[in-house]
Computed example of a mutant assay.
Amino acid sequence: MILHGYWRSGAAYRVRIALALKGLAYEQVNHDLRTGGQAAPDYAALNPQRLVPALEVDGLIITQSVAILEWLDERFPEPALLPAHADGRAIVRSMVQTIVTDVHPLHNLRTLKALRQDFGASEDQVNAWMARWMTAGFAALETLIMRHGGDFAYGTTPTLADCVVVPALYSAERFGVDTMPYPHLVAAARRAAALAEAAHPSRQPDADA
């Protein structure tokens, strides 16, 4: 398996966590989003959306992090990252979508660039924008984790929800967003991150010194 990513990409971080939890070996090809590396012709031919991550497996190209996560769990079912019963799978998927659909797109690099370049937003305005959407999503997740969590975001073993929550917390802390109001989310993310230390952005071969 070859994972195309970028060390600080939250979406690529999700996939690295799942790979680590499942103990799967893979190679990395990294594309620096700050310099537009994802738009290089060879990668654009691989992933027409010109985003990371993408996973190459025996000629198969899978894009979009959630599609990759679901494929990994189906293709390599142990340890399972989705609950065995339909109700639990629905709850985990709702947690995933809270971040992937409603939070992450509003604070990723291309959105922040558009705020600065197209709308002239100041850094204070950009930071307020990020905090607004992160805290809204975290507040909802905190309630869901209080209802359904155990040691992790859902239950007592890691799930796809943890693969998504850990990078979201990393981004919040990176941008100075206050996470004190979300103790259950933070505790679950810390436990999951400890199981996948090799996936952390700072441990990646393309990470800044």
Rank of each mutant, 00 (worst) to 15 (best):
Ile17Lys: 00
Ala136Asn: 09
Ile17Pro: 00
Ala207Leu: 08
Ala207Asn: 05
Phe138Lys: 08
Thr143Phe: 00
Ala128Ile: 05
Thr63Leu: 08
Val166Gly: 06
Arg16Asp: 06
Gly10Tyr: 03
His31Cys: 05
Val57Tyr: 10
Thr156Val: 04
Ile62Ala: 08
Val177Phe: 04
Ala194Gly: 04
Trp7Glu: 02
Leu169Asp: 08
Tyr6Trp: 15
Leu112Val: 08
Thr101Pro: 01
Arg93Phe: 07
Thr157Val: 14
Ile17Asn: 03
Ala140Pro: 00
Leu195Thr: 00
Glu74Ser: 14
Phe175Leu: 09
His31Pro: 06
Gly37Met: 13
Glu142Val: 07
Gln204Lys: 03
Phe152Pro: 01
Tyr6Ile: 00
Gly88Ile: 05
Ala131Gly: 05
Glu70Gln: 15
His107Gln: 14
Phe152Glu: 06
Ala86Phe: 14
Asp178Cys: 10
Trp133Asn: 13
Phe138Tyr: 15
Ala86Arg: 14
Leu21Arg: 03
Tyr154Pro: 00
His200Met: 12
Ala136Cys: 00
Thr63Trp: 04
Gly149Lys: 06
Tyr154Val: 06
Arg8Met: 03
Arg203Phe: 02
Ala86Gln: 14
Leu82Gly: 03
Pro48Arg: 04
Thr159Trp: 10
Ile62Pro: 05
Ala54Leu: 10
Leu106Gly: 08
Pro181Thr: 04
Ala121Asp: 07
His31Gly: 08
